[in-house]
Structures are given as structure tokens and as C-alpha cells.
Design a protein around this nucleic acid. Sequence first.
DNA 1: CGAGCGATTGATCATAATCAAGCGATGTGG
DNA 2: CCACATCGCTTGATTATGATCAATCGCTCG
Lengths: 249, 249
Amino acid sequence: MQPVLRKLSLFAEFSPEEAAAIELAFTQIIDVREDTEITREDDPPDSVHFLLEGFICRQKLLPDGSRQILAFVLPGDPCDVGVSVLDRLDHTLVAMTDCRLARISDAALQHLMSQYPKIRAAMQWAAMQRDGILQEWIVNVGQRQAVRRLAHLFCEVYKLSAAVGLTNGQSCMLPLTQTDLGDAVGLSAVHVNRTLQDLRAKGLFAFGDKRLTILDLPGLERVAEMDDTYLHLEARYEPERWQNSARPT
Amino acid sequence: MQPVLRKLSLFAEFSPEEAAAIELAFTQIIDVREDTEITREDDPPDSVHFLLEGFICRQKLLPDGSRQILAFVLPGDPCDVGVSVLDRLDHTLVAMTDCRLARISDAALQHLMSQYPKIRAAMQWAAMQRDGILQEWIVNVGQRQAVRRLAHLFCEVYKLSAAVGLTNGQSCMLPLTQTDLGDAVGLSAVHVNRTLQDLRAKGLFAFGDKRLTILDLPGLERVAEMDDTYLHLEARYEPERWQNSARPT
DNA sequence: CGAGCGATTGATCATAATCAAGCGATGTGG
DNA sequence: CCACATCGCTTGATTATGATCAATCGCTCG
């Protein structure tokens, strides 16, 4: 199944017509090589990208050269929804692997959503999930200590991957170096290394070869104090809330 | 002017008709007292709130009792847009002062946006600004050291307040204790206290009596390494991108 | 074979947390 | 009206988490 459709299907069950509309909308393909910055300058500013294959980091650089990773983009996720209203982008997208993207014009996306309220609702759900993740990252970096922080990140990535069927057995893609991990959770690479050793010693997971393998998910969740409400993986489309969304109360 | 209209007007100039539509949509008023948790349980789940007066914190509590503040909600800002698609809320809203809110049904909001593309664009702009702020908070908490962190927060609050005319001279509302500040930037209250003393010694601002007074904005911005691109205060509605938004390319 | 990158280790340093106590203002009940 | 409790701010002393600096090792790749 098409990755975007697979992602949105977590929230709503789509009719064949809707599924076809989604598949059709995402036919313009762009391939990007590993380590490329995916800026939008070279691209019409009235379009939006979705990731089909690969792994992307949203990140920001500071004047002193340090880097903060803001989010991971997994296949099926939008890269830059909504940015067309903006004057200037405030972050960078970096391909951590070779990636395949779908480009869609803003107008086409608007059209898709106005034709199919269910698709609009699903896109909104995806945006809410993204916001929830951003918020949880603030919590992670602001409150948790190193071990918990990394464990939490691993839980999150694994659960998101598993939800859209991107796992092989107990493992999922995580093409990051220890330095990258540090930039994601606000720790130095050295400390990440030592913290990973602590965690590995507990036999909760294995991390290497660009993959994360979960050995003991409940154990990892306990260490992470994971409460996955914020991923909203159980949210489902409730038509009665949406079918009359074009009329006021 | 109505706070929501004032906020959205940062992005787009509204016709009298559009302005009237906005004013009309936000007529159902709810008053909330200081220190109240604004949950949505007592309220229809198909509605959304906007803050008209007061100051609200979005926050999350951890199992060990620690708290992370995720965002500030200023007059004119939406409190909970989009949550109607969710199964469960993943954070709490707390009124830091007595507040006045406007409630609007999801359907009415959808109607407003479908009638007026400019209003839809402005709402999307507000959402993008919110996301940008969330991202910058991750950077703040993840990368910056204490002095910079607090300075950055102060710059942000002041600039956002100033943009919507919520400043008196050089001062704006900031009804937080030092403990609250700590929970916002991921520092202990003790360390906030000491850091504030450092900053005060530089004569950049004054903070007390629930207000923040800026004495030297350029100086404060320098300390904060503030780059306010992420607030997108210069973004403006470009009709050519939106007027045909209902048709595909 | 040499260069470069990522992982690893050790040693030292620094930022910020924690613990503990005191102070001043405010508010409340006797 | 006073005694007392509470809250927020402040200060000092100590601790700890994590950063920084520096070096080594293994691996891949040109």
C-alpha cells in the first residue's frame, strides 16, 4: 500500500474511491540522496512533500554550530504541510538515507481535502499527532534524565514504525549516529555513548547497522516511563463530527 | 478590536464582512478563574476555545511530579484547535490569571474557514506559528544554557505580545512565578533565581508584579541569540496562492 | 595504504540540581 | 488585632549529571 495511505488509514478506513484519490494525488515522485538538505528554495513554494521511503530529520542549526534535531519524518508522513503560508522556512530537512518523496501542489491537496472530509480529518489527525510529538520532545529534553530520554525516543520511534507496518520482526529503521541521537535528545555524543551502554547492559534493545531492535518492549517502556497517549494511535474517525462540518451549529 | 481578529490581522487584512464574521463567530463567552485547569471534559468535545483575556499555560505532568510547560497562550490565540479529531487530550491547560475564553463549535469554525479562504489561511498561519514556537522551545531547552534560555523566552513573549498590541510601553503580561519559569525552560527554581539575578545585573529587563519590562531589547536579543524568523511575524496573505485553492493544479 | 568517520574510553571540568534554611509579604482564623 | 501558616524569593553548601578534552580503535573507502 502507498505509504501515505497506510499512515492515514491508521485514523480512518477509506473507501476504494478515497484510497484511489489519495494514490492519484501522490504520483509526482522526487528522489533525494542521503545527506542532502531538502530545501524548498529550488522548488515551487506552493507545494508540499510527503515521504514515501527513507528517513528524514527536521533540524535547526545554532550560531555556535550546535544542532538540534526537531523531529523524525517516517514514510507516510508529510514533510512540510502548511508552510505555503509562510514567508520563510525556519528549519531544515535533511535526508538521513536515500529518500523518495511525493510532491503535491498545495491547491491539489486543498482540493483533495475539500472533496473528502474524511481525508481532511485524517490530515488534521496527522498534524495533531505531530504536535503531540513535538510537545513530548519538549518534555523529554526538558525533564528527563539521559537514560530515560534515550529510552523514550526509542519507544516512540519503534511504536510509530510499528503502527504503519515498517518493522521487520522487532526491529525498525533508525539510521542515526550516536552524534545524531545526541542532537535529538540534547546530550553530547560522549554521554549518549555511555548511556547506550547502560541501556544495552539491561538487554532492552540493540542498536546498530542503522536499525533499532527491541528486545524487551515492556521493560523499555518502564525505563522510559512511556505513556503513548500523545501518539494518538487509537484515535478514529467519527463521521458524526465531520460529515456536517461545512454547516454551522 | 476583538483579540482573535487582532491576532489574525497580523497575517491578513480583512474586509469589513470578514471581520464581522470573525466577531460574530466568537460570541459565546466563558469565564475561568485563576489556577483553574481548563479541561474539556465538562464541555462538548466538538468545540474549540480561543483566549480573549488572560494568560494560559499548556502543560504536562510527569509521574514523578515534575511539570513541563509546553506553551503560553496569549489573548487571541486558539487554545485547542484540532483536538476534536483526538480520542483523548495529552496535555492540560491551566489559567494563570482569570481568563475570558470564547467557545466556538468545530462545525462553525469549519464553516467560517470554508466561507472565507483568507480566514482559513490565517488560521493555518497561526498553527504554523505555534509549531514554530514549539520547535524553538525544543531548541531552547535542548541546546541553550540557562542565561540564554531565559533571555530567549523573554524575547519571545515580549515580541508576541507587542505584535498584537498587548504591551504597555515596554512591558507585557507575564504572570509566572520563578518556579513556573523553571518549568517552562527546564531549569530548577533555584537556578532560575540565580540566573535572573545575572540577567538583571545587566539591566536588560525587569521582571516582577506579573509583568515583564524590557529595558534594552537589542541587548536582550543579543544575549538570547534571538532569531525571530520562527515567529513568522512578517508573513502575509498572498491571495494568488489561495484564491484558487479549491481547484487542483 | 592512508584518510576519515563513528564508536569508545579515561580524565577533568562546569553547569545546574538538590538540600536546607531564612526572609518578607500576604492572608486567615482565633 | 495578633499569631500563624503559606507562598514566593533568596542565599549558602554540597552533590551530580552531563559536557568537554583528548586519545585510541576499528572499519570502510578511495
